[in-house]
Design a protein around this nucleic acid. Structure first.
Lengths: 196, 196
DNA sequence: TAGGTATTCTATAGTTCTATTGAAATAAGG
DNA sequence: CCTTATTTCAATAGAACTATAGAATACCTA
């Protein structure tokens, strides 16, 4: 089944990776295909052997960016853990992803809206799935009495994704950060609040 | 003291406003000075009577975007209310600002990093002030026993600003939204969590 | 209404960027 | 080693964009 990756496959992945790095650094509109080519040590025109257009490169980066997040959320749901555990797992995974695949996360976060509407279908699809899965998680937890039923599940989803986005602000941190400590404090705030 | 605004002043403000609208719609790098000029019904070159450069326009929009937020935070602190009230007021104000001055808020949020470093001083200054004020607010609340001392104030700041940013996701909402309901549920989550 | 100032326009230089094309180089296979 | 397929390059068309300069027009005040 899984053939060994051809040279083309390897170079293609390198090209996506270079695009991710450049877009993360200078934003999609702020970077040029020349920047990407330079990072790959090839000439600007050669990029078009791998991408039909600059937009196609952005789409590839964004899809790669969200894919793991959806898969992880699905795996968390499959584990049937408590909502508290689920929230903690999600926050840890996102913070860890930010460390491991920062470029993809940043580009997905900052530049996905630069994909023209007619191309955005596949990204939106994944986003909608992600939100839906999370909303179901909350509704189920409310049904089981774990979660306050006075809170609108839709608002819960936005609050948690907002919290998750805020982990991006840790990225430019000078000193090493303690992923688990930060994720645990975030979940504590979301789950139990910060009041004494 | 406050002279009546000259025609220049009024047109200048209109130009900043047009820039805000265009940048919010297509992002800074994605929009052109022609787009801004079209929105003002003047020719592209005429814009340069009001701005020395496109970057200067972005800076003006961003400064306008953050100014009110800092002022509001200062006024909240001056009122010496409980931390719970302070958080609720901040969330309400931000959600209301998003309704009233969406373009400025969106541009500040999405495009401020497009300002070149050598120009970014004044914006950073305001951002730093904002974060510092908020951190002081939390430290003080911890000192008074209102807030759990186990939570790192720095993390609290990021969590709350993350929550605040997440209100942006309400902007493209089709139906009218109930600002107070949403803000109150957000503060409830931040203050007391969502567990039952 | 004349003269001056403020505002906008026209035209364009100069740059940068995307995407294409056909040729050249490189690698792979027999 | 020769043939063929893959990958990269060189060169460039063509479009878009920023910023400038000087001419034209609108506006105001005396």
């Amino acid at each position: 089944m899984a053939d060994k990756p051809s040279k083309y496959d390897k170079r293609y992945l390198a090209a996506v990776d270079a695009a991710a790095a450049v877009f993360a650094d200078k934003s999609y509109h702020g970077s040029s295909t020349l920047d990407i080519a330079n990072r790959l040590d090839i000439k600007q025109g050669s990029l078009y052997y791998y991408f039909r257009s600059k937009e196609e490169a952005l789409e590839a980066v964004c899809l790669e960016g969200i894919k793991h997040q959806v898969e992880h959320l699905e795996s968390v749901i499959a584990e049937q853990v408590s909502i508290a555990e689920a929230v903690t797992m999600l926050l840890r995974y996102n913070l860890q992803s930010l460390m491991d695949r920062a470029d993809y996360m940043i580009v997905f976060n900052d530049d996905r809206q630069a994909i023209p509407l007619e191309r955005r279908g596949r990204i939106r699809e994944q986003s909608v799935i992600y939100h839906k899965l999370m909303e179901d998680l909350f509704v189920q937890a409310q049904g089981q009495g774990e979660l306050s039923t006075e809170l609108d599940p839709h608002i819960l989803v936005r609050a948690l994704t907002g919290l998750i986005s805020s982990v991006f602000s840790w990225y430019h941190q000078k000193n090493e950060i303690d992923v688990d400590k930060i994720a645990d404090q975030y979940s504590h705030i979301f789950l139990s609040g910060c009041l004494r």
